Amino acid sequence: MTFTDRRDQFFISAEELAILDTVRILDVRFTPDQGAQVAEFEREHIPGAVFVDLPSTLAGVQDGTSGRLPLPEVEVLRQALEGWGISDGDGIVVYDDRHGITAARAWWTLTWAGLRGVRVLDGGFSHWKRLGLPVESGTSPTVPRGTATVTPGALRHLDADETQAFPPPGVLVDARGRDQYEGGQGDDGRPTGGHIPGAVNLPTTSNLDDNGLLKPASVLSEQYGALGIDGSAPVATYCGGGIAASHQALVLATLGVDAALFVGSWSAWTADPSRPVATGTKHHTLRG
């Protein structure tokens, strides 16, 4: 397969964003351990940005085996888009302070919901500040209510059953760190971590260079090609809670590869004790 380079369709540079005045900018700073980082937003953010509470608007309510960040309810998302001032046809830029990894979940959810033209700020807020670009403080600005239409289903996603039945010729990519993927043994002698049987491992951070910017398409295509991703078989990706894997799906989209997202990811998989778990490195580089 000849990979394409479509990054301009999905990413925007800080330099380009700095001279645009016709896009809606969403700040989606969030970490699993600290939650939505509204205090950081109010301290400083890109001028004109609106803060987005990712778990309450871009994800739904958890149930027993849904995982940490299930898909949002359509009406909740529609009302949130209205409040952010987004209408059909608007250009949208999403950013975070994790080099685009968290913002990728916003890209995935909004694109799944039928919005077009959503792009992620390459390098995130830290790169924006590194370049000395302007910032402002305070709460989200008051914006006219938007009229965006929500039509879910534009991107493919899997549940746990579909992931377990993922066809063996396909490639299932685990986007977590290698230690989490391999698993081990806790102090109590019980196994910890591990991965979905048959999954290969490529940490999401492998998509980024030392400055937190997206690597060149030639490098990305080589590292994904080494996993057996060549367009001849389906691809799916998962992580811990559905954030890092969204970045894998986003990066694969820049290469012209349509990857399904296991939204619930490891948090949904392990919520069901009947699901099998593999450990070790047997499938580290190539699906078994």
Rank of each mutant, 00 (worst) to 15 (best):
V277H: 07
F3N: 02
V143I: 07
T279F: 11
L110E: 08
L81D: 01
E222G: 02
E222W: 15
S206C: 12
V257N: 09
S232N: 10
G89Q: 14
T111D: 09
D210P: 00
R145D: 12
S137T: 11
L158S: 09
L69E: 04
W128N: 04
W108G: 09
P203D: 09
L26A: 04
Q248Y: 01
E82N: 08
H195M: 12
L158H: 08
G123N: 08
T31K: 12
R156K: 14
G280F: 07
R178E: 11
F125L: 12
S137A: 14
G123D: 05
L77E: 12
V135H: 03
V93I: 12
P197M: 03
V135Y: 01
L158R: 03
V94Y: 00
G280C: 14
W108N: 10
T281M: 14
K129E: 15
G35A: 10
L172E: 08
T22M: 00
D187I: 14
K129Q: 15
V171T: 14
S218Q: 13
V23H: 06
A36H: 02
G194Y: 10
V120Q: 04
G64C: 04
W84G: 11
V38M: 09
V200G: 02
T2R: 15
R190V: 00
G83N: 07
K282P: 06
L155K: 05
N211I: 04
T147Y: 00
Q185R: 14
H45K: 10
H247V: 05
I86E: 04
D90L: 03
H283I: 10
E44G: 10
S232Y: 06
T4V: 11
P273C: 11
P169F: 00
L58F: 05
P152D: 07
V50Q: 09
H45F: 01
G91I: 05
R6F: 10
L71T: 08
T109F: 00
G256Q: 04
K215I: 01
A59H: 03
I243V: 15
I101A: 09
G89P: 06
T151K: 07
I25C: 04
L227G: 03
P167E: 13
A233I: 05
H247T: 02
D179T: 13
T281H: 14
L115G: 06
